[in-house]
Design a protein around this nucleic acid. Structure first.
Lengths: 200, 200
DNA sequence: GTCTATATTTCGATAGAC
DNA sequence: GTCTATCGAAATATAGAC
């Protein structure tokens, strides 16, 4: 297995730092309202220096989008189709919940900057869209599934995402483990075996 | 009861038409990526004419925001506090669900243009924030409530919103009444009496 | 109420030195 | 890798005629 690119220890990865700063600003102030000048300012160097690391502002957004793709390849390839039995859904959502809780800002970015991200996909109409959200939408649109199941899956998905974009900072006092456990139980009530009427 | 402002019948309310067009474009392309020129073009007149009806672009967004406030005054004043007994939650969410299904685009706008809307609130730090979302956040943050209940309320809220911002057009083939009924049942499973453990 | 200019600003991006 | 300086595009907003 190849080692990660060798860099003198203690030397911060400027590129990744830029992405961290950009993510924070994009979520807080919006993609279009965040100027490269602001990002550079927070990094401690000038705007032009950014162009050494990224060829354009859109490429910064794309790099953040790729972080989600990486998450997807790690854990959500199982989500691909009807191969998931109903009694596995709760487990799938539990995995999702973990990813979302661990990368709140990243998912928040995707929920909010829908327009900007879609523009990117138009321009570089690249590989298949392995996005978590897009995969879910394809499943929800599948008319082979019983209608009730489709709707309940959507509800469960919404319940999972509620942790990040509805609650805001309202759950700052709740430990992540408690949050995860209670939400998992709630999702079990939504899509657990026995709670969804089977088709006749 | 005062009649709505008298206008010759058949005369379209230009102001409201502008808001309808703006809402559609803002949701589709994003607030910042929608120019006044585009709105004017779709209305059939020039950009400058918009400034006769609205003093600025921000005021168009604010007018759309006020539409949600109006909805809030109609139906969500009940949401104000601990006055809502646990066995009433399902009913409250049912009302929410109705409002959201009837005004999808409006709620979608609020979910996506979070940054732009917050900027408005900063500038005109007006009355209390009677927003649906803000009220929910205040309830979710209330540490008097049992933790499990707070989290389940958030899940239910997420489930309700899933209808608009996750499903996208995936549910185009499902009748609104069916959607509403199944989602109401799902919410019942989340926050219905007997499904939430009572505090000791 | 709507038009044709035009003023003003902001921002992404480039050029070239160090 | 980072800097200063500048270009060019786009968009908001204004002025004043009709």
């Amino acid at each position: 297995m190849p080692r990660p690119p060798a860099r003198p220890p203690g030397t911060p990865d400027t590129r990744e730092q830029i992405l961290d700063v950009a993510l924070e600003l994009f979520v807080e102030r919006g993609y279009d309202n965040t100027s490269l000048r602001e990002i550079a300012e927070r990094m401690g160097f000038s705007k032009a220096a950014l162009y050494y690391h990224f060829p354009s502002k859109d490429d910064i957004l794309m790099a953040l989008h790729l972080r989600v793709h990486a998450l997807g390849r790690e854990g959500f390839d199982q989500l691909d189709a009807d191969t998931v039995a109903p009694d596995q859904w709760a487990g799938v959502f539990d995995a999702m919940l973990g990813a979302i809780l661990d990368h709140r800002a990243l998912f928040l970015l995707h929920a909010r900057e829908h327009a900007a991200l879609e523009k990117l996909h138009e321009q570089a109409h690249d590989e298949e869209h392995a996005d978590l959200q897009e995969r879910m939408q394809r499943i929800l649109a599948n008319r082979q599934l019983p209608t009730e199941q489709r709707i309940r899956l959507a509800c469960a998905m919404g319940a999972v995402m509620s942790g990040i974009f509805i609650s805001g900072e309202a759950f700052a006092d709740i430990e992540t483990d408690v949050l995860r456990r209670v939400m998992a139980a709630a999702i079990q009530d939504l899509v657990g075996v026995g709670n969804v009427a089977s088709p006749p």
